[in-house]
């Protein structure tokens, strides 16, 4: 469990990162908090020739409050999200979710860009991004583009960000006073990746977005559930049941702790509990 030899670069600008990626797209890998990449390298599941540490670029660590949105730099760490008043005020779903991601030691290092960029099917933040209908700013030598959340996650460890690109920002709409959010996850131990989890956002016009994680090959929104829930100000038992039935549409994927049937059952449970706790 020792990584093979690699070289290490720490550019101090975004162009510096991008030119390294351009030069050596296949052999390079970005290093953010390292909480997923370093174990993968030690297991020799990832064997980059060069790792490009992106923590030397200060603008990647900014949380910016713009008139329309909250922009979170890719290098912003979980612990910084947790402590941020701006996030608490405008992205309360993030504040609800962070304590469920791993443990303090990992949250001190892990980043939002790392989580979004990795697209672990059981990670929380991809589902948050989906439920909030946010965008991902992706940069490469060819320029900057914004990918809407619902087009970003492609599959297990697969995203719309290709290997010569860098996620620079996560852009989230600001929470409005009457918007409500719900979250629930089930894990075997506190801080473990979820066996099933869901993030819910209800807009002022009662549009509802529901994003699951830990139940399929990626974090995903379920249109049929959103249809059942949208337009309701309260969720009666029968609405919840209809939504639960609609959850059967999900292509469930089992893992070590839960087979597909268990995932299906738990998806319904987390949905009900998140709806009950919505605020």
């Amino acid at each position: 469990m020792k990584a093979p030899d690699f070289s290490y670069e720490k550019p101090n600008s975004i162009p510096g990162i991008l030119s390294l990626l351009e030069k050596d797209e296949l052999e390079c890998q970005l290093l953010a908090g390292g909480q997923s990449l370093m174990p993968m390298m030690n297991f020799r599941m990832a064997t980059p020739k060069t790792i490009v540490d992106i923590s030397g670029v200060s603008e990647l660590s900014l949380i910016t409050d713009t008139p329309k949105a909250i922009e979170i730099g890719a290098m912003v760490r979980y612990c910084e999200l947790q402590d941020s008043d701006v996030i608490q005020k405008f992205c309360p779903l993030i504040t609800m979710v962070i304590p469920h991601i791993a443990h303090p030691a990992i949250r001190n290092r892990g980043t939002i860009g790392g989580s979004i960029g990795l697209s672990d099917p059981a990670a929380e933040l991809p589902a948050v991004l989906l439920a909030l209908d946010g965008k991902v700013e992706v940069s490469s030598n060819k320029g900057i583009r914004e990918e809407p959340a619902n087009k970003f996650f492609k599959g297990i460890y697969e995203t719309a960000c290709s290997s010569n690109e860098l996620i620079t920002k996560i852009i989230l709409p600001k929470a409005l006073p009457k918007q409500k959010f719900g979250f629930y996850e089930i894990s075997r131990r506190h801080g473990d990746y979820a066996m099933a989890g869901v993030c819910i956002a209800q807009d002022q016009d009662l549009t509802v977005r529901v994003a699951f994680f830990g139940v399929a090959e990626k974090a995903l929104r379920i249109a049929s559930i959103e249809k059942v829930l949208s337009g309701n100000s309260d969720f009666s038992q029968s609405i919840i049941e209809n939504a639960q039935n609609a959850a059967e549409d999900i292509q469930f994927e089992g893992d070590m702790n839960a087979g597909p049937e268990v995932k299906k059952h738990l998806a319904k449970v987390v949905l009900e509990r998140a709806l009950e706790g919505i605020k």
């Binding site: 089930i186 075997r188 066996m195 702790n257 839960a258 087979g259 268990v262 059952h265 738990l266």
Partner: peptide, 8 residues
């Protein structure tokens, strides 16, 4: 162990 799956 009495895992969630086994309990369910």
């Amino acid at each position: 162990p009495m895992t969630p799956e086994r309990v369910l």
